[in-house]
Amino acid sequence: MASFTELEVWKQSRKIRIWVSALAKRFPSEEKYRLGDQIIRSSRSVGNNIAEGHGRFHYQDNIRFCIMARGSLSETLDHLMIAVDEKIIEQSALDDFQLEYDSCLRLLNGYIQYLKKKKVDELS
Rank of each mutant, 00 (worst) to 15 (best):
L105Q: 11
D37A: 15
L99W: 01
S103D: 15
R26I: 03
V84S: 01
F57C: 04
R44W: 09
A69Q: 04
Q60C: 00
E8R: 12
E6V: 01
S103V: 04
I82P: 10
G47W: 13
A2R: 12
S29N: 14
S124E: 08
Y59E: 11
K119C: 07
R56F: 03
E90W: 03
E30G: 05
D37H: 09
L123A: 11
I50A: 05
S124N: 09
H79R: 05
D85P: 00
L23T: 04
Q12T: 08
A22T: 05
I88W: 05
G53N: 02
G110E: 06
D95F: 02
C104W: 00
E100T: 02
D102G: 00
K25M: 13
D78N: 12
S21L: 05
A24H: 06
A69P: 02
I67E: 12
K87Q: 11
M81P: 00
R26L: 13
L73D: 03
W19A: 05
W19N: 06
G36F: 11
E75R: 08
Q38R: 13
E75W: 02
A93C: 08
R70V: 07
K116V: 07
I89P: 06
L80N: 09
R56C: 03
S74F: 09
K119E: 10
L94Y: 14
L35Y: 01
E31F: 02
D78H: 12
Y101S: 04
E75V: 08
R44D: 13
Q12S: 15
W19R: 14
C66G: 07
S74Y: 10
S3Q: 10
K15A: 05
N49T: 08
S13C: 03
K11L: 04
S124R: 05
F57N: 08
I63N: 03
R70T: 00
G71T: 11
Y114F: 15
Q98D: 14
R56P: 05
S3R: 09
D96Q: 14
